[in-house]
Design a protein around this nucleic acid. Sequence first.
DNA 1: TCACGACATGAATACTTCTTCAATTGCTGT
DNA 2: ACAGCAATTGAAGAAGTATTCATGTCGTGA
Lengths: 117, 117
Amino acid sequence: MGVPLYRTKAEFFRTLGHPARIRILELLSERDHAVHELLEQIAIEPSNLSQQLAVLRRTSLVVSRREGTAVVYSISAPEVRDLLMSARRILVGLAESRSDFEDELVVSPLAPDRAAG
Amino acid sequence: MGVPLYRTKAEFFRTLGHPARIRILELLSERDHAVHELLEQIAIEPSNLSQQLAVLRRTSLVVSRREGTAVVYSISAPEVRDLLMSARRILVGLAESRSDFEDELVVSPLAPDRAAG
DNA sequence: TCACGACATGAATACTTCTTCAATTGCTGT
DNA sequence: ACAGCAATTGAAGAAGTATTCATGTCGTGA
């Protein structure tokens, strides 16, 4: 146990900090996908996808197996699904409180037109 | 709603992807803290702490208020606490499955004593 | 109002991480 | 064994993020 947990956590979150990797994890948390299937869903170059998959493999978040001509990926920690959902909940909450606030501005006594952000 | 959710999620996780910011959120999820209190707990330079707090403020994860001479921070989304805990669970799980595998290697026929993780 | 302590900001340099390209490996069918 | 598709790798330049230093702001108490 040389590395403090908050450091490991930060590293973990950084791994999640890329749109393509989020998409990959979302897709894999539904079911296993071959690389070419991921490629259909995510609009990036094959080699870029491979790079992102490599990042996820390094942190053991996903594992791959070869099935004939295809390589199939699956998620190692199904709990990631909950994590993504709970992130969504937080984001929706933050977005709401921000637009609530904008509403309040608009609802002031003699409020002139105030463009929405 | 111009920005796809997976992009926003990635951005969100990137803001969590720094040891100091994780520490800050952990501390704030227990109770509000003044900047000088955070400074006592986290071993970084004051101006660096300010920078990290600024990052968290930009994403509305924390808010600050002035109290006399001090500036007090609090967390906007208490659910962040759950998120951090569920991240911990995933990390522990991944770490265990990795060392299980190492154990298997060690657990050959004449397995010697096995130290607990 | 002046000086001081508590924080924040801007800007520069040093790192990391992204994206893309060219080259490579591993199967499958012939 | 070879052609051809699927996926990966390494490397290089572009883009983004971290850390630090010098400076600026905002209250408080003398």
